[in-house]
């Protein structure tokens, strides 16, 4: 005898009902939680920007951000100005850090569209720092970061994060041992832009040579490292025309 659940009509009704229930449940949950999730992401951006500037609660080994309670206040205190550079035009915008870099990347492909570049100006111990957001591709998914440069365009601090790099390998780009290597690295050779290469086998594990435009790569994470190199070179280069006029 055919079971009730084997009938075609039952199967179709079951599938329809299940899809409607599951679909509306997930849609409801996603909409309900969206404001909370967006707020978390906004605070995270502020934490990341401050981290690059060296404002964090790091202990000896691990990465500790400013707590979400204090981050808004500290962000207002240390980030004195946010600007958007579009060609020769520079406008001040207090929400420049919320600009969607992915959208800007995509729009830049249209002819005639001049890309908008957000730049955050931080002030720490009376000195000015320029913080540049970056976005690139790792092995599996997006990688991004923020780099803080001092007035001579030497790296003051850097922050990387990723969406889905391999745990234990590429995922380690957001660890101290890797990010700290970038501190003090130069990106200019005289006045030519060199960027920083994540290099294998440069035999400088303690990264004592700060003017070789190289930091030590992570073993087993070649493509993630190459992605970072490409990201740093491509995104920082776009800011060079603006940054180099500042010192004149």
């Amino acid at each position: 005898m055919e079971k009730r659940t084997d009938k075609n009509s039952y199967t179709i009704i079951f599938a329809t009902v299940m899809v409607i229930i599951v679909g509306s449940m997930l849609a409801f949950l996603a909409t309900y939680l969206k404001p909370q999730i967006d707020e978390n992401k906004r605070l995270e951006k502020q934490q990341n920007i401050l981290y690059a500037l060296g404002i964090n609660d790091n202990d000896e080994k691990s990465v500790v951000f400013i707590s979400t309670k204090d981050v808004a206040e500290k962000f207002d205190k240390y980030i004195v100005k946010q600007i958007i550079i579009q060609g020769d035009k520079v406008t001040e915008d207090d929400n420049a850090y919320l600009l969607d870099l992915k959208k800007e990347h995509a729009q830049a492909k249209d002819k005639g569209h001049q890309r908008r570049l957000p730049l955050f100006i931080g002030e720490k111990d009376g000195e000015k720092f320029y913080i540049i957001p970056m976005l690139g591709k790792g092995l599996w998914d997006a990688v991004w970061g923020y780099v803080a440069l001092d007035k001579n365009l030497v790296v003051e601090g850097i922050f990387f994060d990723h969406k889905g790099e391999t745990p234990g390998l590429g995922a380690n780009i957001n660890q101290r041992f890797f990010m700290d290597d970038f501190k003090g690295e130069h990106i200019l050779d005289g006045t030519t832009f060199k960027g920083i290469t994540v290099a294998k086998g440069n035999a400088d594990p303690k990264n004592e040579r700060k003017e070789d435009f190289k930091v030590d790569a992570i073993a087993g994470a070649t493509i993630t490292g190459d992605g970072l190199t490409a990201m740093i070179k491509k995104d920082l280069r776009m800011y060079m025309p603006y940054l180099q006029t500042l010192n004149k």
């Binding site: 659940t5 084997d6 199967t11 079951f14």
Partner: peptide, 21 residues
């Protein structure tokens, strides 16, 4: 109540839904 013809799909939906939630 799961129809045997589409049980694999139903299983997939259950695990995906749980994980997304």
């Amino acid at each position: 109540i799961i129809p045997s013809k589409i049980r694999i799909i139903v299983q997939l939906i259950v695990v995906a839904t749980l994980v997304i939630i």
